[in-house]
Design a protein around this nucleic acid. Structure first.
Lengths: 151, 151
DNA sequence: TATTGTTATACTCTATAACTATA
DNA sequence: TATAGTTATAGAGTATAACAATA
């Protein structure tokens, strides 16, 4: 159990990560906002999947996922095939164009981090990744427990 | 220098921190969105300051800062006094009501993290805080170097 | 009846650009 | 002329609720 001031500092740090996130989104190619990049990256990393699974990995509502996916599909980077095992579902799969774009995105991300994180060791980055994964697992999105307190 | 796949994972992790951020914003009281909470928290932590300094700490444009501050001032949680040394500037200072609210916010944040991060040691949280601070310092918001690449 | 996914709507956060006031 | 801050506008991300189709 950590001290109170540590928790308050953590809240500020989490809030400030937004600046880094926005830096990442600024290096993206046109037509590819960060929501689209996240969709492509996760499907590239985990392979084809259904909407529900993607929504989990993105940690956003399925309605949001649906919008991001529609954007990516419209641009020919992703295909939505019907799932033969459950016709309510659709399987998401990268197209060749999507794979090309994903390579490009990886290059841009790598270039940026290599530039700004040049003095970070492989272990440093790995450790930060591990702690962020742990944080996400510990907190999750808590939507089930959420109750916005009235005044 | 880290491996390419580490950087791509870092990009996904940073993107996913949004879920934790939204969990934090769900526990806020009415009338106090996360932008307002960030303003109050930073002024509580660093003491009175001017708009420009706050914009730096928030890592957002001053126009955004101005809007957040206006919201907080309208609700009586912050006062904007003219700066006697430079009449273009205004000094931001918590009101008693703002201090009360800030106490409340700290309680909510602490309760939430104590609940979800119960198995994190003080060192764990401190280490994550340190790494996030380092990340932010390394990357910053990079706005000066940003050029959104055309197709 | 419950679940998968889509769409309509509304809210928050953000940046850019134009503007005011002061240095 | 340059700087501190405000306001108008537009774009991206998100959640809730209502809806369609299928299990």
């Amino acid at each position: 159990m950590a001290e109170r001031s540590q928790y308050e500092e953590l809240a500020r740090q989490i809030s400030a990560v937004g600046a880094v996130k926005r830096s990442l989104s600024r290096i993206l190619p046109a037509e590819c906002p960060s929501g689209s990049a996240a969709v492509l990256s996760l499907i590239g990393r985990h392979g084809e999947m259904r909407m529900g699974r993607l929504a989990e990995l993105l940690a956003v509502d399925m309605s949001v996922t649906s919008r991001h996916v529609a954007h990516v599909v419209e641009r020919g980077w992703l295909e939505r095939s019907p799932d033969p095992e459950d016709r309510r579902s659709r399987i998401l799969r990268l197209t060749p164009a999507g794979r090309d774009l994903l390579d490009d995105l990886g290059r841009r991300t790598t270039d940026m981090f290599a530039h700004y994180l040049g003095d970070w060791s492989d272990e440093d980055v790995g450790q930060l990744n591990a702690m962020l994964a742990r944080l996400r697992e510990s907190v999750g999105d808590c939507r089930a427990h959420a109750t916005r307190t009235p005044v």
